[in-house]
Design a binder for these strands. Structure first.
Lengths: 122, 122
DNA sequence: CGGGATCCTACGGGATACTG
DNA sequence: CAGTATCCCGTAGGATCCCG
C-alpha cells in the first residue's frame, strides 16, 4: 500500500463520505456476514442479530444501490431472495478488514484512554 | 497486511464500533488536518472549513477522550490551546488512509452503480 | 417469506448568544 | 481566543401492523 503524502482536503472529504456511508449501525455487520457467502433475508437477519427488518431492508437497499450487493429474487411460493456480495463489495471488505484488525488490536488502548479521561474529568 | 479468515461476529462488532466512532461528519476531517501537525482551535476550524465551533469542540473532546488527540492549554491572555495527534492517533490514520485510498480509487465505480440503480428503479 | 407503510423517539448537528 | 449554553430541526433507527 503506497501512502501518498498527508491527505489533502478533497481526499479527506472522500474518506469522510465513504466512512459515513459505511459507518452506520449495521452496514459492516451485514457486509461482514455476506463476505462468507450469499444469504437469504431472514438467514442474514439471524446471522447479524439484533437488527430490525426495516433496517436490514434499508441497509441492503443502500448496499445494492452502491453496487456492493446483488439481490436475486426466486419467484417461488413462498418467495426466496438471496443477497450476495459483488466483486466491489469483496474489495471494500479488504480495507474495512484492515481497519477492523486495527480496531481489534487497539481496543484496549482506546478503552484505557477513555477510562483515564473519564476519571480525571469526573 | 495479514488478513485472518472471514471476520467473525465479535470482530464485526468491533469494526462497526470504531467505524461509527470515526464515521461521523467531522472526525476524519479533523484527524486528517491534525495529521500534518498541531493546530490551534481556530486554525483547525479554518483548515477543516464549514464546521461549527460546537461540533469542533464536541469532536475534539471525543478524540481526546479516546486518546487520539492531546489538548494543551497555554494560560496566556488571550488563551491559546493546541491540539495534536497522539501516537495512537497517527496509527489510526494509517488504516483510515488506506480506506481513503480505496474510496478515492473507487468513487467512480460506486457512482456508476448508483446512477444505474436510480435509473432502473425510477 | 420478504418485505412496504406508519408512527414515534433519540440524537447528530447547525445557528445564535454569552463568557473568562 | 476558545470555548459554554440554548434552541431548533432533520434524520437514523426501533416497534408495529399489513400484504402478495
Amino acid at each position: 500500500m503506497l501512502l501518498r503524502n498527508p491527505l489533502n482536503t478533497e481526499d479527506c472529504r472522500a474518506v469522510s463520505e465513504i466512512l459515513q456511508r459505511v459507518g452506520d449501525k449495521w452496514t459492516v455487520l451485514v457486509v461482514g456476514k455476506l463476505g462468507q457467502g450469499p444469504l437469504r433475508f431472514n438467514e442474514l437477519r439471524a446471522a447479524v442479530g439484533g437488527i430490525s427488518q426495516k433496517m436490514l431492508t434499508t441497509t441492503l437497499r443502500g448496499l445494492e444501490r452502491d453496487g456492493f450487493v446483488t439481490r436475486t429474487v426466486f419467484p417461488t411460493i413462498p418467495p426466496r431472495v438471496d443477497y450476495e456480495l459483488t466483486e466491489l463489495g469483496h474489495e471494500l471488505l479488504i480495507p474495512v478488514s484492515a481497519l477492523g484488525e486495527w480496531a481489534r488490536v487497539n481496543t484496549t488502548r482506546v478503552r484505557a484512554a477513555r477510562e483515564k479521561f473519564d476519571a480525571t474529568h469526573a
